[in-house]
Nucleic acid binder design. Sequence first.
DNA 1: CGAACGGTTGACCAATATCAATTATAGTGG
DNA 2: CCACTATAATTGATATTGGTCAACCGTTCG
Lengths: 249, 249
Amino acid sequence: MGQADSLLPLIKDVAKAEQAQTLACQSCALYRLCLPLGLHREDLVALDQIIRRRDSFRRGQRLFESGCDLTSLYVVRSGAFKTTVSAKDGREQVTGFYFPGEFIGLDALHLNTYPSTARALELSSVCALPFDKLQMVSKSIPALQHQLLTRLSRALSDDKDLLLSLGQKSAEEKLVTFLIALSTRFSERGFSAYNFQLPMSRGDIANHLGLALETVSRIFTRLQQADLIAVQGKSLTLLQPEALQTKAG
Amino acid sequence: MGQADSLLPLIKDVAKAEQAQTLACQSCALYRLCLPLGLHREDLVALDQIIRRRDSFRRGQRLFESGCDLTSLYVVRSGAFKTTVSAKDGREQVTGFYFPGEFIGLDALHLNTYPSTARALELSSVCALPFDKLQMVSKSIPALQHQLLTRLSRALSDDKDLLLSLGQKSAEEKLVTFLIALSTRFSERGFSAYNFQLPMSRGDIANHLGLALETVSRIFTRLQQADLIAVQGKSLTLLQPEALQTKAG
DNA sequence: CGAACGGTTGACCAATATCAATTATAGTGG
DNA sequence: CCACTATAATTGATATTGGTCAACCGTTCG
């Protein structure tokens, strides 16, 4: 409850800190959502010393590209990213969207190259955790290893749910499930659960859900006509969350 | 080279050891594919002491069920398993198949309940790693933590590839991609890459790939008529692996 | 031996993709 | 700041892949 208070102004604080580029983990507004959760003070200091806070990425700019040498894991600091994997013929699949406090690059830990490409969806920034240093530091910080395991496991089980969507659900169910999941993530970050901006394009959403762009657009209008949501451009309002829930399958 | 020799008779050895139920990790034929890879001798002994080798599971028997308390991680010892997640209305998605040396339950690490259900596809056995003890032991064995991270990361990136299949590929491409992936996994386990048994039903394959059972059946016949594969029942031969590769998308 | 299950094959249909045209929105340079 | 252009989104008409329904065959197991 006191927690909710401290989460609410979360993103604004980070934005301020952006300018200074000096915010330590211990005073970062993302603390509760981020890697250092559960670390002791002295461990935090050790972690702080290896973290590099990177400049902003503009819309479309790449954080890393499939096939490049693995250098760092990243935690989103502000903005949003998407990752994609490609088939040999160039077809791409949007494999995930990433918001403040979330990890990018976990799927690369087992290789020395990134298997996916990460791009900023809007003006965004990250904290970079150089992989070699992270490995060294984490040996002496069990809680850090544990955080990594937890994050990976969470990511894995989220992907299993996405597999369920892609494999078994209708277009409408896919989209509604997706919107509800977004709503949850936004509210965890101190934003309204019912009114938020979609940082990704219709095309990105469609691709992510294995649909055609036009299908997504049509379903948006249909849901809007049924007064379940209100969309205009990137701005989305969930008007009847419970009714939506029943449409999620 | 010498490695291949030791892998080839791999499964037979495990089968023998099944009867004794006493095989230590250090002398297990799955060693190269399994968790203990890279552990020192003394660490192996510690690991051995927490591992419980479980009795066999018959076809269809559950290893654990969605919603049950998390007790153990499992490594397949012999046979094969599938995992499924369910929508509220009961629809299921087969989220993975698991062969000797592979982990089951990694998606549960972040919760205290399993998010998925695991069932044996044939007479199978596992090594169980009680979760609490695993956590204790792994604190003092960095290589073990590292193995877990690696496995999780690998699982995550495999799932991203599956998302690509489900989202972007045609029915035929999905199935061919799946068969090639199976082929790779079997050959890693010392079996022929071109001639193996499918432990799962057509329905399981179809569900896993987001297709109808009938579609899978039809594509099997089509590929067979094109002399790319030979199927009879569960037995599969890849007749033109390169030609198949080009059909995988 | 018969029932049950798993798999194959065929005919038909529907959901959603594709193609095409139009309208918003946003980014850019004067 | 506005006009212009490029990009994104919507909407409509049509096509197609793969799903559904149904009948049939083969194998396995009690």
